[in-house]
């Protein structure tokens, strides 16, 4: 099956990520994996919602959060999702140069988000909001930290893929890899939208 795919290499189909059976399996399997990830984050959100008012002696969400910086982080991550869309569009056109450029922009934005998040966490720790302060603080750092770890993993992953594309070029083996990393990136973006709403906005309002 993959043998016949090698013959078709000259012809670049509309969805190159699904040109081979391996590619189709990878895309499907990855969507399924994200289904599991949704349950994972759903459970973390449920935990956070159950514990978010249990601040004990520590600071409350309203005292702690500074929306302008979180809003900036949100904008950065949303834009990075857009740039990864541009990368996938370039992938479909087989425009390797544009794809690589957009992937690099995505990674840089990802780093920007991570830097803001680390800065934010350090600030909170100075204000007496550490992992062990209260049930709220444990739940906060676990939920937001799990997301941050996902972003960090995504940044490392996409970086490795960029290097691979430089070395191996874009073909039916590498195309699905780029594609699923883009789905992954959108997923952690969507999770962040929920974190922004449930953790930060609801934390400020009530």
């Amino acid at each position: 099956m993959s043998a016949s795919a090698h013959h078709a290499e000259e012809h670049w189909p509309h969805e190159p990520e699904k040109a081979t059976l391996e590619g189709r399996n990878k895309v499907l399997g990855f969507w399924l994996f994200l289904g599991g990830e949704s349950v994972l984050f759903g459970t973390l959100f449920a935990t956070f919602l159950a514990l978010r008012d249990q601040v004990g002696d520590g600071p409350t969400a309203a005292e702690l959060f500074k929306l302008p910086m979180v809003a900036a982080a949100t904008m950065i991550l949303l834009v990075s999702s857009l740039t990864s869309v541009f990368a996938v569009q370039a992938l479909h056109r087989k425009d390797v140069k544009a794809m690589l450029n957009w992937l690099i922009v995505t990674v840089i934005l990802g780093f920007g988000f991570l830097a803001l998040e680390i800065y934010e966490f350090v600030e909170y720790i100075h204000e007496g909001h550490t992992f062990t302060t209260s049930a709220f603080s444990s739940a906060f750092y676990t939920l937001v930290g799990f997301h941050g770890a996902h972003v960090a993993f995504g940044v490392a992953w996409i970086t490795i893929l960029i290097v691979q594309i430089f070395k191996k070029g874009l073909n039916f083996v590498t195309a699905p890899k780029i594609y699923v990393s883009a789905i992954y990136w959108h997923f952690i973006d969507v999770v962040w939208v929920f974190i922004f709403t449930v953790v930060y906005l609801m934390g400020k309002v009530g």
Binding site: T47, A50, L51, Q54, V55, G56, F131, T132, T133, S134, A135, F136, S137, S138, A139, T142
Partner: peptide, 21 residues
């Protein structure tokens, strides 16, 4: 993960004095 964090890193998810459930 939550139980591990409670046991190894001093989390408060299930520690009632600090608001756990």
């Amino acid at each position: 993960v939550l139980l591990t964090f409670d046991r190894l890193f001093g989390g408060n998810f299930f520690y009632i004095p600090n608001g756990g459930s």
